[in-house]
Design a protein around this nucleic acid. Structure first.
Length: 293
DNA sequence: CAGGCGTGGCG
DNA sequence: TCGCCAAGCCT
């Protein structure tokens, strides 16, 4: 089966998005670049439903990069709540500081300026430039990668890391007009999020089912290397999470409270020290810790 | 560059 | 139930 016709693909996906796009607060003309940037950091590895309330509260409290930069990292971590990966809160705070220092408090529009900010990698830089400023960039997130793997390449899942071939496919498919390219980017992401999902793709509802190589070749099973899972029980990540949950809920925590969170003393102390090193906690007195003030 | 880094919902 | 998954980044 041949790769789908680019024009037919564009028309089908864009028409579908026009009807089915979710009305998310960081989309649309009223969303500021800062709102888009905050959403992108929060959405890294985190479902939309969990981001929505935190994003709203965050922008209410810190409507500009300067307002966040003027507050403490500890307050940023506290507001981050249970979104997970709390170092993202530190990076967002650091990015806000850099934006004030280097860009006069305005979120930059250029990819090169964006990717130089803490917590902003290739995907996030392309996403902000595209969604907030209408620029033309290849936006390769897990959704887009899965959609292109199936529709164009005929495989159920993409490789572990982005390959050159994969980027070439995405580049070739990117519409020439910047505004259309930006819509294409968000539309392919949305298609992956709502229809072409990882576990149970809703091909009946898919606008490009008739063009899809994976479907057209009978849904060949994934035959690549085993996909990386995430260990959890007993790991440092779980231990760190327990300690951070305590710290978010109180002004400060004592050694006895920390002890009660985790039985293995050596691991507990190691994680506590690492959290301090990471800047997520500070030792305020001997045997007492708090979010950094 | 493979592995570490949170959290919770869902099939 | 429990493994898989959710708009990655950093080292």
């Amino acid at each position: 089966m041949d790769a789908p016709d680019t024009r037919a693909l564009h028309e089908a996906v864009l028409a579908w998005y026009d009807v089915h796009a979710r009305d998310l607060p960081w989309r649309g003309t009223s969303a500021t670049p800062w709102s888009v940037m905050v959403s992108e950091l929060m959405l890294q590895q985190t479902p939309v439903a969990r981001v929505l309330p935190v994003h709203a509260a965050w922008l209410e409290r810190w409507p500009t990069p300067a307002s966040l930069a003027a507050d403490t990292t500890g307050e940023a971590v506290r507001m981050w709540g249970r979104l997970g990966y709390p170092r993202r809160a530190l990076r967002l705070h650091a990015a806000a500081t850099a934006i004030v220092e280097r860009h006069d408090g305005e979120v930059p529009a250029a990819y090169d300026d964006l990717i130089a900010l803490p917590g902003v990698g290739d995907y996030t830089a392309a996403a902000i430039a595209s969604f907030a400023f209408g620029r033309r960039h290849v936006v390769l997130d897990t959704n887009v990668r899965r959609v292109l793997a199936r529709v164009v390449s005929g495989t159920e899942f993409p490789a572990q890391a982005v390959t050159r071939a994969e980027r070439d496919v995405a580049t070739a498919l990117l519409p020439d007009d910047p505004a259309t390219a930006a819509t294409w980017a968000v539309a392919t992401m949305e298609l992956g999020a709502l229809v072409c999902t990882a576990r149970q793709p809703a091909c009946d509802a898919c606008p490009v089912a008739g063009l899809c190589v994976w479907r057209g070749t009978g849904y060949p099973a994934y035959d690549g290397p085993p996909r990386r899972g995430q260990a959890w029980a007993g790991t440092d990540r779980q231990c760190r999470g327990r300690i951070m949950a305590l710290a978010r809920e109180a002004d400060s925590v004592g050694a006895a409270q920390v002890e009660a969170t985790w039985p293995d003393a050596e691991q507990r102390e190691r994680c506590l020290a690492a959290l301090v090193t990471d800047g997520l906690l500070t030792q305020i007195t001997p045997g007492r810790w708090a979010l950094p003030g």
